[in-house]
Design a protein around this nucleic acid. Structure first.
Lengths: 146, 146
DNA sequence: TATTGTTATACTCTATAACTATA
DNA sequence: TATAGTTATAGAGTATAACAATA
């Protein structure tokens, strides 16, 4: 099965990438989901419900993640002046620092992956992945915040 | 960052693929790791330690997975006649059936992903992924059993 | 009535460490 | 002394369901 092998190669690459990333993020007390939350807060406070929708997880999952990040002093919860039911999550200075360090670590890992890949291969890869991505359905997550 | 975007596209594709797979496997009481174990047993009984090495996880993780699969009647543990410390894991008829159904479901999901991709794009993708995979380090897992 | 986020509860996958049985 | 796999314990990430406060 040709297709199965392609899928396995993609899985293999991504698995290794995630492992490498997790390894690097651990230094800053982060994980991929935790980093994803921090990354979503750099522009300013965000509601928990918005985060849940952005990452396509349940509100419960966000409660859990934010609890942990708050415990570690990386984020704060504030009341939303516009809706007293809602909570706004925002970065602390420590959280902003961790996010920036994590961003640099991530760039390093990913840079290593594609380092020697010729420009035309990058273009081809981007084009092919885009078409596969579309075939798999509309983008439900804000992948840019990973 | 061009490279970051490529990485995000790969993550997005694989995330969606995993979700689609998980959704389909759930019907058979399986998950991706559980299916992976079943798939490794189709040729015959395998020691737990061998499974741990093949998937690059700790023996503890295999104990957990095999416990669950055994509870559901999909695998059995047997004594290894060659080493009384070791346990051989083997498929039950129900496990073999589940594995085959899961395989078909997987082929369907993956077939859909690559359905309309031209042959030259498949070849390019395979070549590029192979080079990235190598750059990420030697293959520690038996990816074929996924 | 509907929505926001919490508690309560539970499952899967993963890990480390200590231990038992065997080699 | 080393190995195979278990118990014991833990933690992250995820889910559903019931509920409180608010809209």
């Amino acid at each position: 099965m040709d297709e199965l092998q392609l899928a396995e190669q993609m899985l293999s690459c991504v698995t290794k990438m995630r492992r490498a990333l997790d390894e690097r993020l651990k230094v800053y007390g982060l994980s991929v989901p935790r980093k994803r939350v921090l990354g979503a807060l750099t522009e300013g406070p965000v509601r928990q419900g918005t985060l849940a929708a952005a990452f396509a997880v349940t509100p419960r999952t966000i409660t859990e993640l934010v609890d942990g990040l708050q415990r570690d002093g990386l984020v704060e919860r504030r009341d939303d002046p516009a809706d007293r039911r809602a909570r706004l999550v925002c970065l602390t200075p420590a959280g902003r620092l961790a996010d920036e360090q994590a961003k640099a670590a991530r760039a390093e890992v990913i840079g290593g992956m594609f380092a020697d890949l010729p420009a035309e291969d990058r273009a081809a890869l981007a084009r092919i992945l885009t078409s596969i991505d579309h075939r798999l359905g509309a983008v439900p997550l804000d992948e840019r915040t990973r």
